[in-house]
């Protein structure tokens, strides 16, 4: 396996591989987004209690789930980057952080816009909402730390350490609704039980989750490529690439 993986540890090959994968993710994102959003907004039935306000679920839940998935990915990359001193893994951390931050912001904002009509408040300091807000701060901390160093090797290491520190927040977010009394309800979709949502509402939700996941992939790959170009800008392969682009 190492023999097979080894070439991808080289920047040039990873750049090419990321470029090859990106269109596939994009091809999956666009139709699933359109189908999911139209289905969720116009075709799914209204909820028996919450009426049409429940349609916010179709961005709230995917954004929240994928914000956490992005963080898990970053944590794994940070771990690999720190232990094996793989700069590519550190670049992946830096590439994913802004995407995760935006997803977290979307989850928080849509949650507020949903909470106001249903709960009666934009914001409540309960364990779920607070831990999700901390996730946003951790994301912003990682981005700020990475940009604060002009030495990108140091920056990558610092950001990776912060990523690993923040990983404790993930189980807290996930189990906050189980461990404590919160205003936020429990999980609708869990791995081990039947989801507590009607099937005709669940299908568009799953499509939207898929769409957010593939879009996360597109953005991480795109930003990872930029990160590579930036950090390898004095290498021959980047120069060659720019020269070809300049001529074409």
């Amino acid at each position: 396996m190492w023999k097979w993986l080894h070439p991808y540890a080289k920047a040039e090959h990873s750049y090419a591989l990321a470029g090859k994968l990106m269109p596939w993710f994009l091809v999956l994102t666009i139709p699933s987004f359109i189908i999911g959003i139209v289905w969720g907004l116009a075709f799914a039935p209204a909820d028996y209690q919450q009426g049409d306000s429940f349609r916010i679920i179709y961005i709230h839940v995917p954004a929240a789930m994928m914000a956490m998935a992005a963080y898990s990915t970053m944590a794994i990359a940070a771990f690999i980057g720190l232990v094996w001193q793989l700069r590519l893994a550190e670049m992946a951390v830096a590439a994913a952080a802004p995407v995760g931050a935006i997803y977290t912001f979307i989850a928080l904002f849509t949650g507020a816009a949903w909470g106001k009509p249903m709960w009666g408040a934009w914001w409540v300091w309960d364990a779920r909402l607070t831990s999700e807000l901390i996730l946003l701060f951790v994301y912003m901390g990682i981005i700020a730390l990475y940009n604060a160093f002009s030495d990108k090797v140091l920056a990558g290491r610092a950001a990776s350490i912060l990523t690993l520190v923040g990983v404790i927040n993930l189980p807290i977010i996930h189990f906050s609704v189980v461990w404590w009394n919160t205003l936020h309800q429990g999980a609708t979709i869990t791995k081990f039980e039947q989801p507590s949502i009607a099937t005709e509402m669940l299908i568009p939700l799953l499509i939207m989750i898929f769409s957010f996941a593939t879009f996360l992939g597109v953005m991480i790959l795109y930003r990872f490529r930029s990160e590579l170009l930036q950090r390898e800008q004095h290498r021959a392969w980047v120069i060659k690439l720019v020269q070809i682009k300049g001529r074409g």
């Binding site: 039935p45 919450q50 999980a187 949502i197």
Partner: peptide, 18 residues
């Protein structure tokens, strides 16, 4: 001075709820 509604994680169309 403040009353908030807590709902559960079940979502279903009105007909099913009936």
């Amino acid at each position: 001075f403040e009353v908030l509604a807590k709902h559960d994680e079940d979502y279903m169309p009105p007909e099913v709820a009936d």
